[in-house]
Amino acid sequence: MNESIIKTERLDRCYTTVRKETGLLAALKGVFSKTSVVKHALLPLDLEIRRGQIVGIVGANGAGKTTLLKLLSGLIFPTSGTASVLGYTPWERPYPFLRQISLLLGQKNQLWWDIPANDSFQLLITIYDLDKSTAQKQVDRLAAQLDCRHVLHTPLRRLSLGERMKMELIGCLLHSPKILFLDEPTIGLDVVAQTNIRQFILEELKGSGVTILLTSHYMDDIALLADRLLMMSHGAVAYDGTVEHFMSLMPSTKRLLVDFLHPLQEALPITPSLKIPAGALSFDQSLSSSELLQALKLIVSQAPIKDLKIEEPDFEDVIRLFLKKEFSLHQARHPQ
């Protein structure tokens, strides 16, 4: 299990896009002269991932998460640097490599839209050159586990988003990949469907030896599933470690939630930079211990309270705080 399965050295990727000015005249000018903008989606990255790890990749939009997945799965070429995934250079996409990986894109269908999922699976069985009866048993087992056997013969276009995602997962796992790239697998799903997919990944894949790289904007996905957290910001890895360690790194804060009986008659200054404005009916803020004490004193003495709660920060709060801090640092370093 300690064997390194993914290794990158100075792997980076730039995208060149054309800058288009607003307006008809500018658009006409743009036909003859174009201004290209180079964006560094991933800064030179050295990374090593061991077999069986579940790596949660977190970051704001444009942080480089999906670019990293696309590079490691072989979907795109890098601008420079090297990567070895299962001993192969991913973007060369040799068939023995492709037979051992799967990429699930939460925002894209990968099965065939016009035909029932089971027909898609039959096609995948042929494409991956799998034993038909073993693979069909795998389909039945996974469908039973995901509670979706009843829709196996319905055209994909007729299924709900949650059902489609279950089918996509079965399609991804059919050939028993050694590495699974999951790009926002729960995006757009309702809470029940999210929980089902999360639970399925936990029961079916965690500890099975399959290496998973998972990106998600739902922090519950990462907190529950990931052994390792990669926090990305502006194309670079800002944190690499366990979720628990990451939580311990952040300053201790607590969330204070207050509902007032009546709108505040005058503003309450909690710190020089933080005050509750006059007219407020509620207050919700993560505060340090000293700020919390100060706030409690002021509120209890000066405001009519309807309800008051103090909560421990959850993973999502900490991530938000971290990214906010990272953003300020980036702005300071790159004012343009």
Binding site: L75, R93, I101, L105, K108, N109, Q110, L124, Y128, D129
Partner: peptide, 10 residues
Amino acid sequence: GAVNALLLRP
């Protein structure tokens, strides 16, 4: 980008 799924299959 529907080509993505096809690029990653053998």
